[in-house]
Design a protein around this nucleic acid. Structure first.
Length: 193
DNA sequence: GAGAAGATCTCCT
DNA sequence: GGAGATCTTCTCA
């Protein structure tokens, strides 16, 4: 179980976002591990991105985006949902990648225990859904993903080739013209086409 | 201290 | 396809 190194994250946010597709997200629980492939992401930057939390500068909530790369950024929204991000760019430069959808490969039973769903696809094909399936809440904010603790991102065992599609980001009003959402083409876990 | 908006999901029609 | 749920966070006074 070798987590991706810090250097993977300390690059341009758009590059990291695309590179995260096909990587494995591992959630370690006392009952076992849940392993999932990242199939859909969105990139968020700083002062040049009006859709980003970091657009207007650091606040208590978004300060993680300004910190070191390779950390988790979990925030609560719409009174119900948590969203999982990974911080990017070098320290002091805001940037994060929102994980929008995953394909759960291992520990499926554990995921179903965390979240009731009528199918495997419905378990994790959305940002609020996958955090519930992996039991990720605000206490998992600002975890070091390179340390090999509760939350890890690693290379897949077998490198499958995939085609990346870019599109507009979802659920935002500002910065809508940018194609900063990336997903694996033809993957049925992608939240929207 | 109040008010508004939000990187969404579910249920209902 | 559309509205309601529901509460944290930020902004402004």
């Amino acid at each position: 179980m070798k987590p991706l190194p810090r250097g993977f994250y300390s690059r341009d946010t758009l590059t990291v976002a695309k590179d995260l597709l096909g990587k494995y997200l591992v959630r370690r629980l006392s009952a076992g591990n849940i392993e999932a492939m990242i199939v859909e992401v969105e990139a968020y930057k700083g002062s040049d991105d009006p859709a980003s939390h970091a657009y207007k500068g650091p606040t208590p909530r978004n300060q993680v985006m300004f910190g070191k790369p390779g950390f988790s950024y979990v925030y609560f929204t719409y009174g119900k949902h948590y969203c999982l991000n990974v911080t990017t760019e070098r320290e002091g430069v805001p940037g994060a990648v929102l994980v929008r959808a995953i394909e759960i490969i291992g520990g499926v039973e554990l995921a179903f225990q965390n979240r009731k769903a009528n199918s495997l696809v419905n378990l994790s094909n959305g940002p609020g859904k996958l955090t519930e399936a992996l039991n990720i809440t605000k206490i998992h904010n600002e975890l070091d993903l390179t340390k090999g603790d509760e939350l890890i991102i690693r290379h897949p065992d077998i490198n499958k080739s995939h085609t990346i599609t870019a599109s507009r980001r979802i659920g935002i009003k500002a910065g809508n013209k940018r194609f900063w959402r990336f997903y694996i083409k033809n993957n049925r876990f992608v939240s929207r086409l």
